[in-house]
Simulated scan of single mutants.
Amino acid sequence: MKQLKLGLPKGSLEKATIALFESAGWLIKPAARNYFPEIDDPELICSICRPQEMSRYVESGMLDAGITGKDWIMENQSEAVIVSDLVYSKVSRKPTRWIIAVAGNSDIQCLEDLEGKKIATELVNVTTRFFKGKNINVDIEFSWGATEAKVVSGLADAVVEVTETESTIRAHGLRIIHELMESNTQFIANKDAWNDPWKREKIENMSMLLQGSLRADRIVGLKMNVPEGKLQGIVDILPSLNAPTIANLYQTDWFSVETVISEDVVRDLIPKLKKNGAEGIIEYSLNKVI
């Protein structure tokens, strides 16, 4: 039996990734202190590894495909195939950001003020290329963690760190002077695996289902009964992906109307539908929108 070696990210994205695969149709069962979780697909072999290392393993062929961040693909200058973006809306509504920050009371106000200064970061290669492109000479030091604290303790003049809400940055009394880049989760593939017809089809099918699950995250189905005389008025106010589905109710002058809409508009829409003659309104969640 042919099998595809799939890498799943360890750390903050691990639970969200497993949940995403479950909604897409794959049940993954991680085990304590085990980096090879079970999956209910005999065509897949799963491994869990750090996102920082994922692109190297995929590029080398140790893994056929994997999920990691755009930032670590750039850091490793990986030549793996980018299959698709996976913006995990259940984790964050927007991409993460890599920023340059200094102490709140620092005299450093702009990038040029960092000339000759020490910068701590885990994203060493990207940071090096950035400042080289700006012709600003800085001393870049790899940070194993707790990067924000290095400015507070005087071990660095600035940090390049990732943030979603800036809460940790503010908690350490730091001030952002520049945004280096945005990053999001990406599904990547090894070039040889991508050129293998069976593996490519497996990877593309996985990508399609994962994307479908992400699209369905903030979309719901809405179904209702509408009398014939009120039908046009309901259709006029009813949003949909393409057009609502309308069917006659058996031996009546009523219609069943069904649509798929953004979850954000439901709370305002249902009272309007009720006011305009809709009855038996049902809202239901979706697993995938392909």
Rank of each mutant, 00 (worst) to 15 (best):
Asn242Val: 15
Asp253Met: 08
Val257Asn: 01
Thr259Lys: 02
Asp236Arg: 00
Asp236Ser: 08
Val266Phe: 10
Gly229Ile: 02
Lys274Trp: 02
Asp264Pro: 12
Val226Phe: 05
Ala243Cys: 15
Pro244Lys: 08
Tyr250Cys: 14
Thr252Ala: 04
Ser256Gly: 12
Asn242Ala: 15
Glu263Lys: 15
Ser240Val: 09
Ser240Met: 09
Trp254Ala: 03
Asp264Arg: 10
Ala243Gln: 09
Val265Trp: 04
Ser262Tyr: 15
Asp253Leu: 07
Ser256Arg: 01
Thr252Trp: 01
Trp254Asp: 01
Val266Tyr: 03
Asn225Leu: 12
Glu258Ala: 14
Ile246Gly: 02
Gln232Asp: 05
Asn225Ser: 12
Val260Lys: 13
Pro271Gly: 07
Ser262Cys: 14
Leu269Arg: 01
Lys230Arg: 09
Ala247Lys: 13
Leu241Thr: 10
Asp264Glu: 12
Gly229Ala: 05
Ser262Gln: 09
Glu228Val: 05
Glu228Arg: 04
Arg267Met: 11
Glu228Thr: 04
Ile237Ser: 06
Gln232Val: 10
Gln251Pro: 12
Val235Arg: 03
Pro239Leu: 09
Lys272Glu: 02
Val260Arg: 08
Asn248Gly: 14
Gln251Ile: 11
Glu263Trp: 07
Ser240Gly: 13
Ile237Val: 10
Ala243Trp: 07
Pro239Ala: 07
Thr259Phe: 06
Leu238Ser: 05
Val265Gln: 03
Glu263Ile: 10
Asp253Lys: 03
Asp264Ser: 14
Ile237Lys: 07
Leu273Pro: 11
Phe255Asn: 04
Asp253Tyr: 04
Ile261Leu: 15
Asp264His: 11
Pro244Ser: 10
Ala247Asn: 11
Thr259Ile: 08
Thr259Cys: 08
Gln251Leu: 15
Pro244Phe: 13
Asp264Met: 13
Asp264Cys: 13
Val235Gly: 06
Ala243Asp: 06
Gln232Lys: 09
Ile234Phe: 06
Lys230Asn: 04
Asp264Thr: 05
Glu263Asp: 08
Leu269Pro: 12
Gln232Phe: 11
Tyr250Trp: 13
Ile261Tyr: 05
Arg267Phe: 13
Val265Asp: 01
Asp264Trp: 05
